[in-house]
Design a protein around this nucleic acid. Structure first.
Length: 293
DNA sequence: AAGCAGATCAACCGCCCACCC
DNA sequence: GGGGTGGGCGGTTGATCTGCT
């Protein structure tokens, strides 16, 4: 048997709050302060659930709340904290005066997540998709599709059927939205029609790769379609390479050791502890938050 | 101008946990 | 120690807004 409902849901008002209801809450809090929310509807003369009253106060009526747009500094802070502690919205909101967990959560879901995806960054791990895919292959025991030191090509697509090309020559940026991952995003259709030089001209990292390729492959007649690798996340692409030519050429030029599977990986607990350590170094104010595992 | 799709955000839901008796 | 309760939390929903065709 579950917990009984906090109120008679059939007989309480739901939906948007009116100015009159807001005024009642404000008047009640001004007189009595914040206390037992289950008694607030009765004492304030509201036909609302106590929980709903608390939510209205904490997310909208509190006088210390900001109602303007998020600043770039706040955005950076959310990104850094989300990277470190994940979707613990209330903890993140505590570092942003005047913002609620609901504000932060909505901002993340509607703006920041999409921004990262469009930049070719996985919003869960905060790593470039290429790295995530490579690690996916490592975890699942699949061969790394193209483990070169200089460039990686994946024909993984996002929801918009965009294709990502990554160079891993750049180091991990500190501020995700202000640095260049050397990531180019094309639709599959577009890329298949572009010549190598057309694409590489947009990015110095790709230009440098072009100069390392055999002369026959770096002519404008070669298209990127020749170099697209199989998608490691799909069954058809798992063990198959479409662009074996480039893969072989690059691997010959820059042989790397194929990473082995799980034995070399840290344990889950080690990973969590390392993340917390990093979080506390980056955000000393969180030192007063007790994290129990 | 109308209809549609996507974006936004306030509000709700249900689970969890700390506290109190 | 155990059950009941209030409050906090993250995830989800749905009404409204906005922009595009």
């Amino acid at each position: 048997m579950g917990r009984p409902p906090c109120c008679d849901k059939a007989n309480v008002k739901r939906g948007p709050w009116t100015a009159e209801e807001d005024a009642k809450i404000l008047a009640y809090v001004a007189t009595h302060g914040i206390g037992n929310w289950t008694l607030v509807p009765q004492k304030a003369g509201l036909n609302r659930c106590g929980k709903s009253c608390r939510l209205r106060w904490t997310n909208y009526l509190r006088p210390d709340l900001k109602h303007d747009n998020f600043t770039p500094q706040e955005e950076d802070c959310i990104l850094e904290l989300h990277k470190t502690i994940g979707s613990r919205w209330s903890l993140i909101a505590k570092q942003l005066p005047g913002r609620t967990d609901n504000d932060v959560k909505n901002y993340w879901n509607t703006k920041l997540k999409k921004k990262l995806i469009n930049m070719g960054i996985d919003p869960v791990t905060h790593k470039p998709f290429a790295q995530v895919f490579a690690e996916y292959g490592k975890i699942s025991g699949l061969p790394i599709q193209n483990a070169t030191n200089h460039i990686q090509f994946y024909n993984n697509t996002n929801q918009n059927n965009q294709l990502f090309i990554f160079s891993n020559e750049t180091s991990t940026p500190h501020h995700h939205l202000q640095q260049n991952y050397s990531t180019q995003i094309y639709t599959r259709e577009t890329l298949q029609t572009l010549s190598f030089s057309e694409v590489s001209s947009t990015n110095s990292s790709f230009s440098s790769l072009q100069s390392q390729l055999p002369s026959s492959s770096s002519t404008s007649t070669s298209t990127w379609n020749d170099y697209i690798l199989g998608d490691p996340l799909t069954s058809s692409g798992t063990h198959q390479r479409q662009g074996t030519f480039l893969s072989n050429q690059v691997e010959e030029m820059h042989p790397v050791e194929q990473p082995t599977c799980s034995p070399a990986m840290d344990s889950f607990v080690d990973t969590i502890l390392a993340r917390d350590k990093q979080m506390l170094m980056d955000f000393p104010p969180l030192l007063d938050v007790y994290l129990d595992y």
